[in-house]
Design a protein around this nucleic acid. Sequence first.
DNA 1: GTGGAAAGTCAACGCCTGATGAGTTACCTT
DNA 2: AAGGTAACTCATCAGGCGTTGACTTTCCAC
Lengths: 204, 204
Amino acid sequence: MKAPQRAAGRTGRRPGYSGSREAILQAAGAQFAQQGYEGATIRGIAAGAGVDPALVHHYFGTKERLFVATMRLPINPAEVIPQIVAAGVDGAGARLATLFVHTMRELAGANPMIGLLRSATAHPDAARLLREFFTGAVLEKVAAALDVPQPRLRAALCASQLMGMLVAHEVVGLPPLVEAEHDTLIAALGPVLQHYMSDPLPGD
Amino acid sequence: MKAPQRAAGRTGRRPGYSGSREAILQAAGAQFAQQGYEGATIRGIAAGAGVDPALVHHYFGTKERLFVATMRLPINPAEVIPQIVAAGVDGAGARLATLFVHTMRELAGANPMIGLLRSATAHPDAARLLREFFTGAVLEKVAAALDVPQPRLRAALCASQLMGMLVAHEVVGLPPLVEAEHDTLIAALGPVLQHYMSDPLPGD
DNA sequence: GTGGAAAGTCAACGCCTGATGAGTTACCTT
DNA sequence: AAGGTAACTCATCAGGCGTTGACTTTCCAC
């Protein structure tokens, strides 16, 4: 039953390729997602990767930089946004809702976006990063792709609903949402996103 | 310039009524709201209240119990829900949106709900508390007051949008939302909440 | 082959955290 | 006037945190 144990008290470099760096990144992603920036610990991440805590610093320097290295979105907005908007504004709400719900359910429990949100609530830098990412990589892209008035406001409204669904579903765990079928959530969200994207707003 | 300093190195009970307990509760509320459960410290709270850290334990025992003592919602759902639903389902979306946006903007920066959310993301107990509170005190009440199919699911959908607006506005600080007029947000949110409350859903 | 760089561990540092217990002062009842 | 109780601070504890520097072992280029 003796599993090939990592870091078995042995010092010095291991023979062959160990994949420790990737193991650390993966463990860090899981811990940040589950416990947020403050809650996750270097020691815990190292244990999860089967590695000495000092090795984490060897690779990433500080916890802060490890966090930054870990952060990424589950989907690449640069390629997804055109896909959703391409066929025109009509039906874009339904397409976005479908993509979002499926991604959320598939990544349940290991959603990097949740890690970002968890961290953003306790770590101002993460909040700033999230804001800059959204305004830069999402809002602007959507604004460029969507031919409607006030595109940034509309994108932000969509983001508010999607973030909220994520928090209510993954963090708080509201039972009616967790137990609902994919199609129910999609049917509920679709018209909302469509409303934000194309219905008239004050200031149009 | 010598302000009447609290806890000026003097030991023993202070003459007169000091209001220390209330000062601690207020400081704790602010710290939990701004930094979440893990981020807030007993020492920081004590300093904010102008008091020795040990006095916090004297009154509340543990950090956990102080947190519970601090938690409350900005509005009392027991009296607000009937008010919103009373005049019928029609227009309830707009009424809820108006109440929500005004409350959110008035409490900006000191919203106890944000403290709960921040804490829920890092502290499973807070998440459980938030879930139990929502299912018990909100979802059930709404379910009883609303004469529509699947009331709990509808209430949860509304909650997801409101939580999301709170996170996007207060935590992430998306510029288009922060800069929008009250009326713009209300006009955007109203139809969404109305949709969740009264439009047909799969499973009706 | 030989030497430098990378991979890896170990032990320890200084700091901050929540919590405790003893001691001091004021208040309230009788 | 006396004594109990509540309010309050002080010094201190043990434990966990991020981080560091020295040391060992393997890899790779020349």
